[in-house]
Design a protein around this nucleic acid. Structure first.
Lengths: 346, 346
DNA sequence: GCGCTTCATCGAAGCGCTTCGACAGCGACG
DNA sequence: CGTCGCTGTCGAAGCGCTTCGATGAAGCGC
């Protein structure tokens, strides 16, 4: 492999000139820069990674901690890891994958050895060990997800509270009156994975605010029809369901409702909110308030890069506003529809 | 962070002695070594990653290329990436994730900049661009999966041909006579993902060898019942199904068969072969010949580490023998069962 | 035409580690 | 008692890059 010295010789300049010409950190005349670039291209020069790291004290590597729990949704997990990696590459960083039990030890190690310039934390629990570690680590760290105590941290995530409120508002605006929430499986809630809790909290809070009574079900075995039966028992007049759950449960909601003699959206409106999957290929696609991995990850990586490169200190918490995608699973109820079309209720 | 110099001062020895004491590359007296280790522990010393890389010309990093296709099974994908990472950590390597289009460019870059000591290639197609690249790269590379032309490469994988043969043998031994294969979706076959093809080839080959006639279905839309109906049309007397397909199709086989008035294993025996998922939580668990991610990944990482560290050159292809897990989905047919129990047909 | 600034370039000092060769000390051997 | 060969330790030379300070050349005003 060609070294910077080879390029310098080829271009007839000094080593430092090559470095400055390629990095742009000092003014170099156009002609010299061109010669250097030509030489670099000709020799197929790429700087030796560790030499660059050592001299510049910067690795251009981000560590990504992504622990795998028994109840982890692999698909969502993969999507986030990929999106972080893609976003990092766009800013000229590579990503080191830290998994499993190695998460804590890996964070320490990659910080202590200066292997990583920064750390991205995925799949955050309400009381996450990695929060305490991040505070004492002095290696810039950004959380995708929001632990209970955010002091001294930098966190990015979808505004789940707002997403929950948005789902309620849409359903009420469409004339629905009796809303149930199907949440994540028990296992996920038990370890206090942060976002199902935040969604649920936002849901209950906003329901109270709008003066409606709601029901909540946590499917124990990823079974949709059990959850729905549970909701129907609590609220026999159920006419709307909000799904903040995994794809398995969501995917079988249509069938489960059909089994109970209800159709979507005629009898029951459905909104999937704060979910990573698309419902486009479901028998009846559901209106969706997506948990957009791309948005969260590129925002987080962007922040991390700015902390590392410019020493910026972003706010503790950045909430990404939700967006609503209509796919036809929330028709207006007949009562409302019978009102004059030109003057819809506000 | 403490440097090697701090440790040397603390232990009252020279820098090189510290290096040798910690690496064990030269004889150091027990007392000195102990003093050095104590000093290192006291100062919380960890060697600076890039300094070590630069001096030793070794990064202790493996790159992992794992491209994401539209039809990629995220769960399997994640499992393999995780298993590679875990296996690498056990040998003191970290893993860099290279995704998406970045796969080729990332391989080049991490090799050219000496960022990675070696490369693991996942999700290999029969005609994979990464094979040609690996040949010209001079960076040790191990494929998990087997492209058509393996010359000059090092590849590890489950012996899918043997797994296919094993599934046929087991079914025939259990007295089944009419076997159908449900393979991967069209999309996966079209891009010539290597293992579905190898499985299918082994399946057809062994069926011919054992003198039976078989049927094959490729579900187009991940729909199990369509595939089964297709098989039944081809072979109305179907009494055994081999599944070499994704979890979505496999998961709904029981229901699809029930819908067609057949039960497992009474009417139809089922074996899942060369699959990454477990069928334990299916309504009827299926006998399984697993594609064991852990086995493949740790074998591959082991090989890569030995190439990097000892300059070994393993054989082009290493096939991992299949194992059979009985879960009760292959009962002997009544005909066979009525034969004397003490003298089963061979 | 002198001193001043500005621009482009260079030389050299590290970054923190590994590793090679050198060498002191010491027991063994003739 | 001199010499040989070990063993354990040290000093120093890099690894390939970045970056600081220095310097020469060119441009400017007075």
């Amino acid at each position: 492999m060609a070294t910077i010295e080879d390029v310098a010789r080829e271009a007839g300049v000094s080593i430092s000139t090559v470095s400055y010409a390629l990095s742009g950190k000092r003014a170099i005349s156009a002609t010299t820069r061109q010669r250097v670039q030509d030489a670099a291209t000709k020799l197929n020069y790429l700087p030796h990674a560790s030499a660059r790291m050592l001299a510049a004290n910067r690795s251009h590597i981000f560590a990504v901690t992504a622990p795998l729990h028994p109840d982890t949704d692999h698909s969502a997990h993969m999507t986030f890891a990929m999106e972080v990696t893609k976003a990092a590459r766009e800013r000229d960083y590579d990503t080191l994958l830290l998994v499993h039990k190695d998460a804590l030890e890996g964070m320490k190690r990659s910080a202590a050895t200066s292997l990583a310039d920064g750390i991205i934390v995925l799949d955050v629990d309400a009381h996450d060990d990695r929060a305490a570690l991040a505070r004492q680590l002095s290696c810039p760290t950004v959380f995708i997800g929001i632990p209970e105590d955010t002091s001294g941290l930098v966190c990015v995530d979808l505004d789940f509270e707002a997403a929950a409120a948005m789902s309620i508002d849409r359903l009420l605006d469409a004339g629905r009156t009796s809303i149930g929430l199907i949440s994540h499986p028990e296992e996920t809630l038990v370890r206090e994975s942060n976002f199902p809790l935040r969604f649920r909290h936002g849901f209950e809070h906003h329901a109270a605010l709008r003066g409606i009574d709601i029901a909540v079900a946590n499917p124990t075995h990823h079974r949709a029809h059990e959850a729905i039966a549970e909701l129907l028992e609590l609220k026999p007049d159920l006419d709307a369901i909000v799904l903040n759950t995994n794809i398995d449960v969501a995917g079988s909601v249509t069938a489960a409702l059909a089994g109970l003699g209800r159709s979507v959206p005629r009898d029951v409106a459905v909104v999937a909110a704060g979910v990573t999957f698309s419902t486009l290929r479901f028998p009846v696609p559901f209106d969706t308030i997506p948990l957009d991995a791309h948005a969260s990850c590129s925002a987080a990586v962007d922040m991390l890069a700015r902390i590392v490169e410019n020493g910026e200190s972003p706010p503790e918490t950045t909430l990404i506003p939700p967006t609503y995608i209509e796919l036809g699973s929330v028709a207006r109820t007949s009562v409302t529809t019978s009102a004059p079309v030109t003057a819809p209720a506000t």
